[in-house]
């Protein structure tokens, strides 16, 4: 469904992605791991069109999409839950939720059923929510665009352990519905629990890919690229 083929993305002269490649198949959950500064967020930004790779190819259903404007990529069926959530603070919870809504199986009612707290707080400002509720709103907002692939950039960042467990259940439920996901995570247990495939990024390149089980037992990769002793 999504193929990222040897892309090179720069910030000014700084070479952040150095030939990064990965693939997400229909209904598959792919985790993207790596240390800070490895280029994970840049890879997500390149896929959604916020950054334009200087070289390489990004294909969606076989058609090249690199260099297209973000709105066009989003409308093809790529949903974004960005790093730091990036809710629209001037908008209410309900306005945030339906902001990018497009027709499809996901409706506001279904999202409210999944996250009842959001319905209770629908008229409040989005930034009055707790961190966990904000993350759920960011996920709900992306779901309402009715994507076929969901990009999640560090969804567990800054959340309490209890909320991270809740997040894990939500991701598992979405996976159960057959939604494909690319999940950037620092939280290794969470990533290993939901992912079908695992990619490790280091210095702008995918240096490892395998199944969660293989990575869990590969002490060398975990030590070298993830800093886990």
């Amino acid at each position: 469904m999504l193929e990222v083929d040897a892309i090179h993305t720069f910030y000014g002269e700084s070479h952040v992605l150095d030939g990064a490649s990965l693939e997400v198949s229909r209904g598959q959950v792919v985790a993207l791991l790596g240390r800070n500064g490895a280029g994970k967020t840049t890879l997500v930004r390149s896929i959604i069109g916020f950054e334009r790779p200087r070289r390489g190819r990004i294909a969606w259903e076989g058609a090249a999409i690199q260099g297209q404007p973000p709105y066009a990529i989003a409308r093809r069926g790529v949903g974004l839950v960005p790093q730091g959530r990036r809710l629209f603070a001037p908008l209410s919870v309900a306005e945030n939720l339906v902001f990018g809504a497009r027709p499809g199986p996901w409706t506001a009612d279904r999202v409210y059923a999944l996250f009842p707290r959001l319905r209770e707080r629908a008229e409040q400002g989005a930034t009055t929510l707790s961190g966990g509720e904000q993350q759920m709103l960011a996920i709900g907002r992306a779901l309402l665009t009715n994507p076929r692939l969901l990009l999640l950039d560090e969804p567990s960042e800054g959340l309490a352990p209890l909320i991270v467990r809740e997040l894990g259940r939500v991701l598992a439920a979405l996976k159960g519905e057959g939604l494909a996901m690319l999940v950037v995570e620092q939280n290794l247990p969470l990533a290993l629990r939901v992912a079908d495939r695992v990619n490790v990024l280091s210095r702008g390149r995918v240096v490892y890919h395998g199944s969660p089980g293989e990575l869990a037992t590969d002490e060398d990769v975990k030590r070298r690229y993830l800093g886990i002793q």
């Binding site: 069109g49 916020f50 973000p70 709105y71 989003a74 974004l80 960005p82 603070a89 902001f99 990018g100």
Partner: peptide
């Protein structure tokens, strides 16, 4: 109006959700 208010806050994110910000 919601698109404009959201765009004042974070135009890039609005585009990432499918709004033709241009």
């Amino acid at each position: 109006g919601a698109i404009v208010r959201a765009g004042v806050w974070d135009a890039e994110m609005a585009a990432g959700l499918g709004v033709n910000v241009a």
